Amino acid sequence: MAQVPPPRWTEEQFAEDAAKSQALFSEARMGEPLEQYLDKFEEFRLAVDELIEGTVDLTLLKEHAVDLLVRSEMRTAIRFLASPWISEDDLKVLANTTLSAQRLRAEDGAGAQRVIDTILMGLDRSRFPWVSEDREPTQTEREVAVISTAALIATQKMQTARRNESKNEQEELVTDYLIGQDWTQVPTRTISTLNDAPAPGEFCRESKFGTRKADLIVRLQDGRVMPIECKVSNSFTNSVKRLNNDAAVKAKAWIAEFGTLGAVPTAVIAGVFKVHNLKAAQDDGLTILWAHNLDALGKFLEATKP
């Protein structure tokens, strides 16, 4: 049986679907409940207020370093004292420590002291001007610092949650669609050769295919393997990272490892994308499907049946 080529799209088709995808993203984005943000804001307003008051306007941060850093919400508040805020991964490298309670308490709290020193080096002088000026803050300065810092944290937390939820939702969407097309989900596995892949008509999730991990791996009825990446982009800049610098790079690696007769690297995408970036990724061997049009996936799956 001759292998059916995966769908390929013209620039006009990409433009039409990109516009539809962006409209759906905007609709979902504006429909997010304000209450989620406000809950996060209030949680961290209280934490930042406690942090400033409990350390006498940040002057006693080092003295209370260990007790503060072992508390998750305080550790977050401390990371956001710097500008730009410092991620936990970066902080561990910069302070040469881990952020586990055991490590922070070890060596008389030397690791915790290094964490605070790192934060103070990047302290935002616009939000906390009194620290560098060695004086007490005014009531207004203190209130502005608390509100602005809580707003920064709440915004970042919402953005992270949105990305994770969108990706998870998209993976579930594709999973449900495959099951609806009579594909059978099987356990996760490491696939070093095509013999390790699921059987035709089966798929698995979050598995390593060759040297790279895929969100889903589908075995087509003609024997080829379709590794699928689920990508959600909230901006044109973000789309390059997720589509061209990630999914398309994986596609080239999979084709190099398994060949075009063995692999059909695919991305199911949603959100905001530029046409020329979509075209470039497709030219790199990536099959592109849209979350709002999974029927295109269904048609291809059906075409691979003998």
Rank of each mutant, 00 (worst) to 15 (best):
A82G: 07
A82T: 06
D17P: 00
I78Q: 01
L81W: 08
A82P: 01
L51I: 02
T97S: 09
K92V: 07
E63N: 04
A28Q: 15
K92N: 10
E42Q: 15
Y37I: 02
E43G: 11
L81D: 09
L38C: 11
K40P: 04
V56I: 10
D90P: 08
M30E: 15
S87K: 11
E88L: 12
L61C: 06
L58H: 09
V66H: 01
K92E: 13
Q36I: 03
L38M: 13
D108N: 15
A23N: 02
E50V: 08
A106N: 13
A23F: 03
L81C: 14
L58A: 12
A18T: 07
L61A: 09
Q36K: 04
D39S: 14
I52A: 05
Y37H: 08
T97K: 03
A18W: 07
A106P: 12
D17I: 03
T55Q: 03
L91W: 11
P84D: 07
K40Q: 10
I52R: 05
A106L: 05
P84E: 07
D89M: 09
A77D: 00
A19S: 12
Q102W: 00
E32D: 12
V56A: 10
V48Y: 07
D49Q: 06
V48E: 06
D57A: 13
L24I: 06
E32H: 12
T76C: 00
S26E: 08
S100L: 05
E27V: 13
L51R: 06
P84F: 05
S83N: 12
Y37D: 09
L46C: 15
G31P: 15
S26T: 11
D57N: 14
T98P: 00
V56Q: 13
W85E: 07
E35K: 11
A19K: 10
L104I: 14
L104D: 08
K62P: 06
L51S: 03
L69C: 01
L46T: 15
E107L: 15
V93T: 13
P33A: 15
F41Y: 09
D57K: 09
A65C: 05
R45Y: 09
L24Y: 01
L34P: 05
I78L: 01
E32W: 11
D67N: 01
K20L: 05
E88V: 09
E43D: 15
D17Y: 03
L38A: 09
A65H: 02
M30Q: 15
F80P: 03
K40H: 13
F44S: 01
M30V: 15
S26A: 14
E73P: 00
F25W: 13
R45G: 01
E27K: 14
G109T: 09
L81T: 10
R45V: 05
E35W: 10
F80Y: 12
F44K: 02
R75T: 02
L60C: 07
E73I: 04
L58E: 05
A77S: 05
V66E: 04
I86S: 08
E42K: 12
H64T: 02
D89N: 12
T55R: 03
T59H: 08
E50P: 01
L51A: 03
A18L: 09
A28F: 15
M74A: 02
T98M: 04
S100H: 05
F41D: 02
E42S: 14
R79F: 04
R79V: 02
P84V: 05
A95L: 06
